[in-house]
Design a protein around this nucleic acid. Structure first.
Lengths: 216, 216
DNA sequence: GATTTTGGCTACTCGTGCGTAACCCTACGC
DNA sequence: GCGTAGGGTTACGCACGAGTAGCCAAAATC
C-alpha cells in the first residue's frame, strides 16, 4: 500500500558502539527532562535519530536502559573524582581536590546529574543502585576522616564517623542540585563554599571539639 | 447475575472529613511504599477501605491526591518545627531545637517522610512544590545565620549565606533519609550528630574564619 | 558474485490503570 | 412519611506506551 520510497539515501549505517552511545546520550537527555516514567522509549529513540526496536535490540528494556545510563554517568563521575584525589595527600587537600573534581563534573554534565541522580533517588528499582554508589562515597569520606583521626592519635566509633560522612555527602549532593539548577553558577566557587562548611566543621571534630546538647 | 446480597450490614457511612483523612493516610502509605507511579489508585482506595470513585470525588485526580499528601505532611512538619524554635533564643539554641523537632518528626513519621519527600524530588510536577518548601527552610536558616552575624557586627553577601544554608539543609535532609532507613536509630542522637556537623562548622564561619583554596 | 551477518524499519499487540457513567440506599430535615 | 442530598458501589471506556513480529538492505566474508 505504502509507495515505499526505495531507500532515499539516508545512509546512516553506523557501528553498534557508536549508536549505543548516541542512544545513551539521548536517554540521559530525555530521562533528565521528563523523569523516568514520563519519558517514552519512542521519544528517546527519536532523539537518538533511530527507531525504537534498535534501542531494544542494543540496550534492552526501559529499566535496563536507565540502569545503563546510571552506570555510564556514575562511572564517569567516579573516575573524574578518583583521578583527582591522590591518597597520600593530607586530608584537607584530598577533600578539596575531590570536591573540586566533583563539582567540576556536575557543572559540565548538569543534566546528566540532574536527570539520573535526582531521578534514581525516588524510583524503587534504582534506589538500590544509587544507594550503593552513595555508600562507596560515604565509605571513602569516612575512611578519610578516620585516617586523619588516627594520625592525630584519636579514635571514633565507626557508626559515628559514618553518620558524619553521610551528612557531608548529603550536603555535597544538595549543593550539586543547586549547581545543576543555576546554570550561571561557578563550580569552583561552589566547591569552595562546600569546603568551608565541611572542613571548618570537620576540622573541629577532628580536633576533638564536640557539641553537646544543653540539659533540657 | 450476581445474587446481590441485600446489603450485609457493612454499615460504614462516615462523614467526609473522616474519610478524607483515611484516604490521605492510605495514600501516604501506598505512595511511600510503591512510589508515585507504581502506586495505583485502586490500591490506595482499597487500603483506605473505600472504592475508587470516592477517592476521585473527594480528593480528585492522582496528582491532586499526591499534592494533598505533600501539603498535609509538609504542614505538619512545619508546625512541629515552628512550635519548637522560639525566635528570641540564641542562634545555636534555635538551631538545636529546630533540628530536634525536625528529626523527632521524621522519626515519628518515617514513611511519611520517605514516601513524600523522597518521591517528590524526582517527579517533575511536584519538584516545584517541594522546592518551595525547601526554599522556606533555607530562608529560615539563612536568616538565622544572618541574624547571628549582624549581632556580631559582621556581614556576608546574601548569596553566600544562601548557599551555606542550602548545604546545611541538604545535609539535614540526607540524615533524615538515613534515619528513615534505620528504624532502630534514635532521632535525638541523629539531631545531635547533625548539630555537631552544622554548628561546629557554622560557628567557625560566624567567627569569620574562612577556608581558602591553596594556590593551585 | 553469492551468502551471511549486521544495521535498520514499519506496523502492530496487548496489558495496565486512570478516570467516569450510571445507579443504589440510608439518614436526616421538614 | 417523604424528598433529597450525600455517602457508597460496580463495571466499564479508553488512551497510552512498552515491547515484538516480520521484513528489508547494505556491508562483510568467503
Amino acid at each position: 500500500m505504502l509507495a515505499r520510497v526505495p531507500s532515499l539515501p539516508t545512509f546512516k549505517r553506523l557501528p553498534r558502539a557508536v549508536r549505543e552511545q548516541q542512544m545513551l546520550d539521548a536517554a540521559v537527555k530525555v530521562f533528565s527532562r521528563r523523569g523516568f516514567h514520563a519519558a517514552s522509549m519512542d521519544e528517546i529513540a527519536d532523539d537518538a535519530g533511530i527507531s525504537k526496536p534498535m534501542v531494544y535490540a542494543y540496550l534492552g528494556t526501559k529499566e535496563e536502559l536507565f540502569v545503563a545510563c546510571l552506570h555510564r554517568e556514575g562511572t564517569r563521575m567516579m573516575q573524574a573524582i578518583a583521578g583527582a584525589a591522590a591518597p597520600d595527600l593530607p586530608a584537607d587537600e584530598r577533600l578539596w581536590r575531590g570536591l573540586r573534581a566533583f563539582f567540576g563534573f556536575v557543572g559540565a554534565h548538569r543534566d546528566g546529574w540532574a536527570v539520573l541522580y535526582r531521578q534514581a533517588r525516588g524510583e524503587q528499582p534504582f534506589a538500590g543502585e544509587l544507594a550503593a554508589m552513595r555508600s562507596r562515597m560515604v565509605e571513602v569520606v569516612a575512611g578519610m576522616l578516620d585516617h586523619a583521626l588516627r594520625a592525630d592519635g584519636r579514635e571514633v566509633p565507626e557508626t559515628e564517623l559514618e553518620v558524619v560522612a553521610y551528612a557531608l555527602v548529603g550536603a555535597t549532593e544538595s549543593l550539586a542540585d543547586w549547581l545543576a539548577d543555576h546554570p550561571e553558577a561557578d563550580p569552583e566557587k561552589t566547591a569552595t563554599r562546600m569546603m568551608n562548611v565541611a572542613w571548618l566543621g570537620a576540622a573541629q571534630l577532628l580536633r576533638g571539639t564536640t557539641w553537646r546538647p544543653p540539659s533540657t
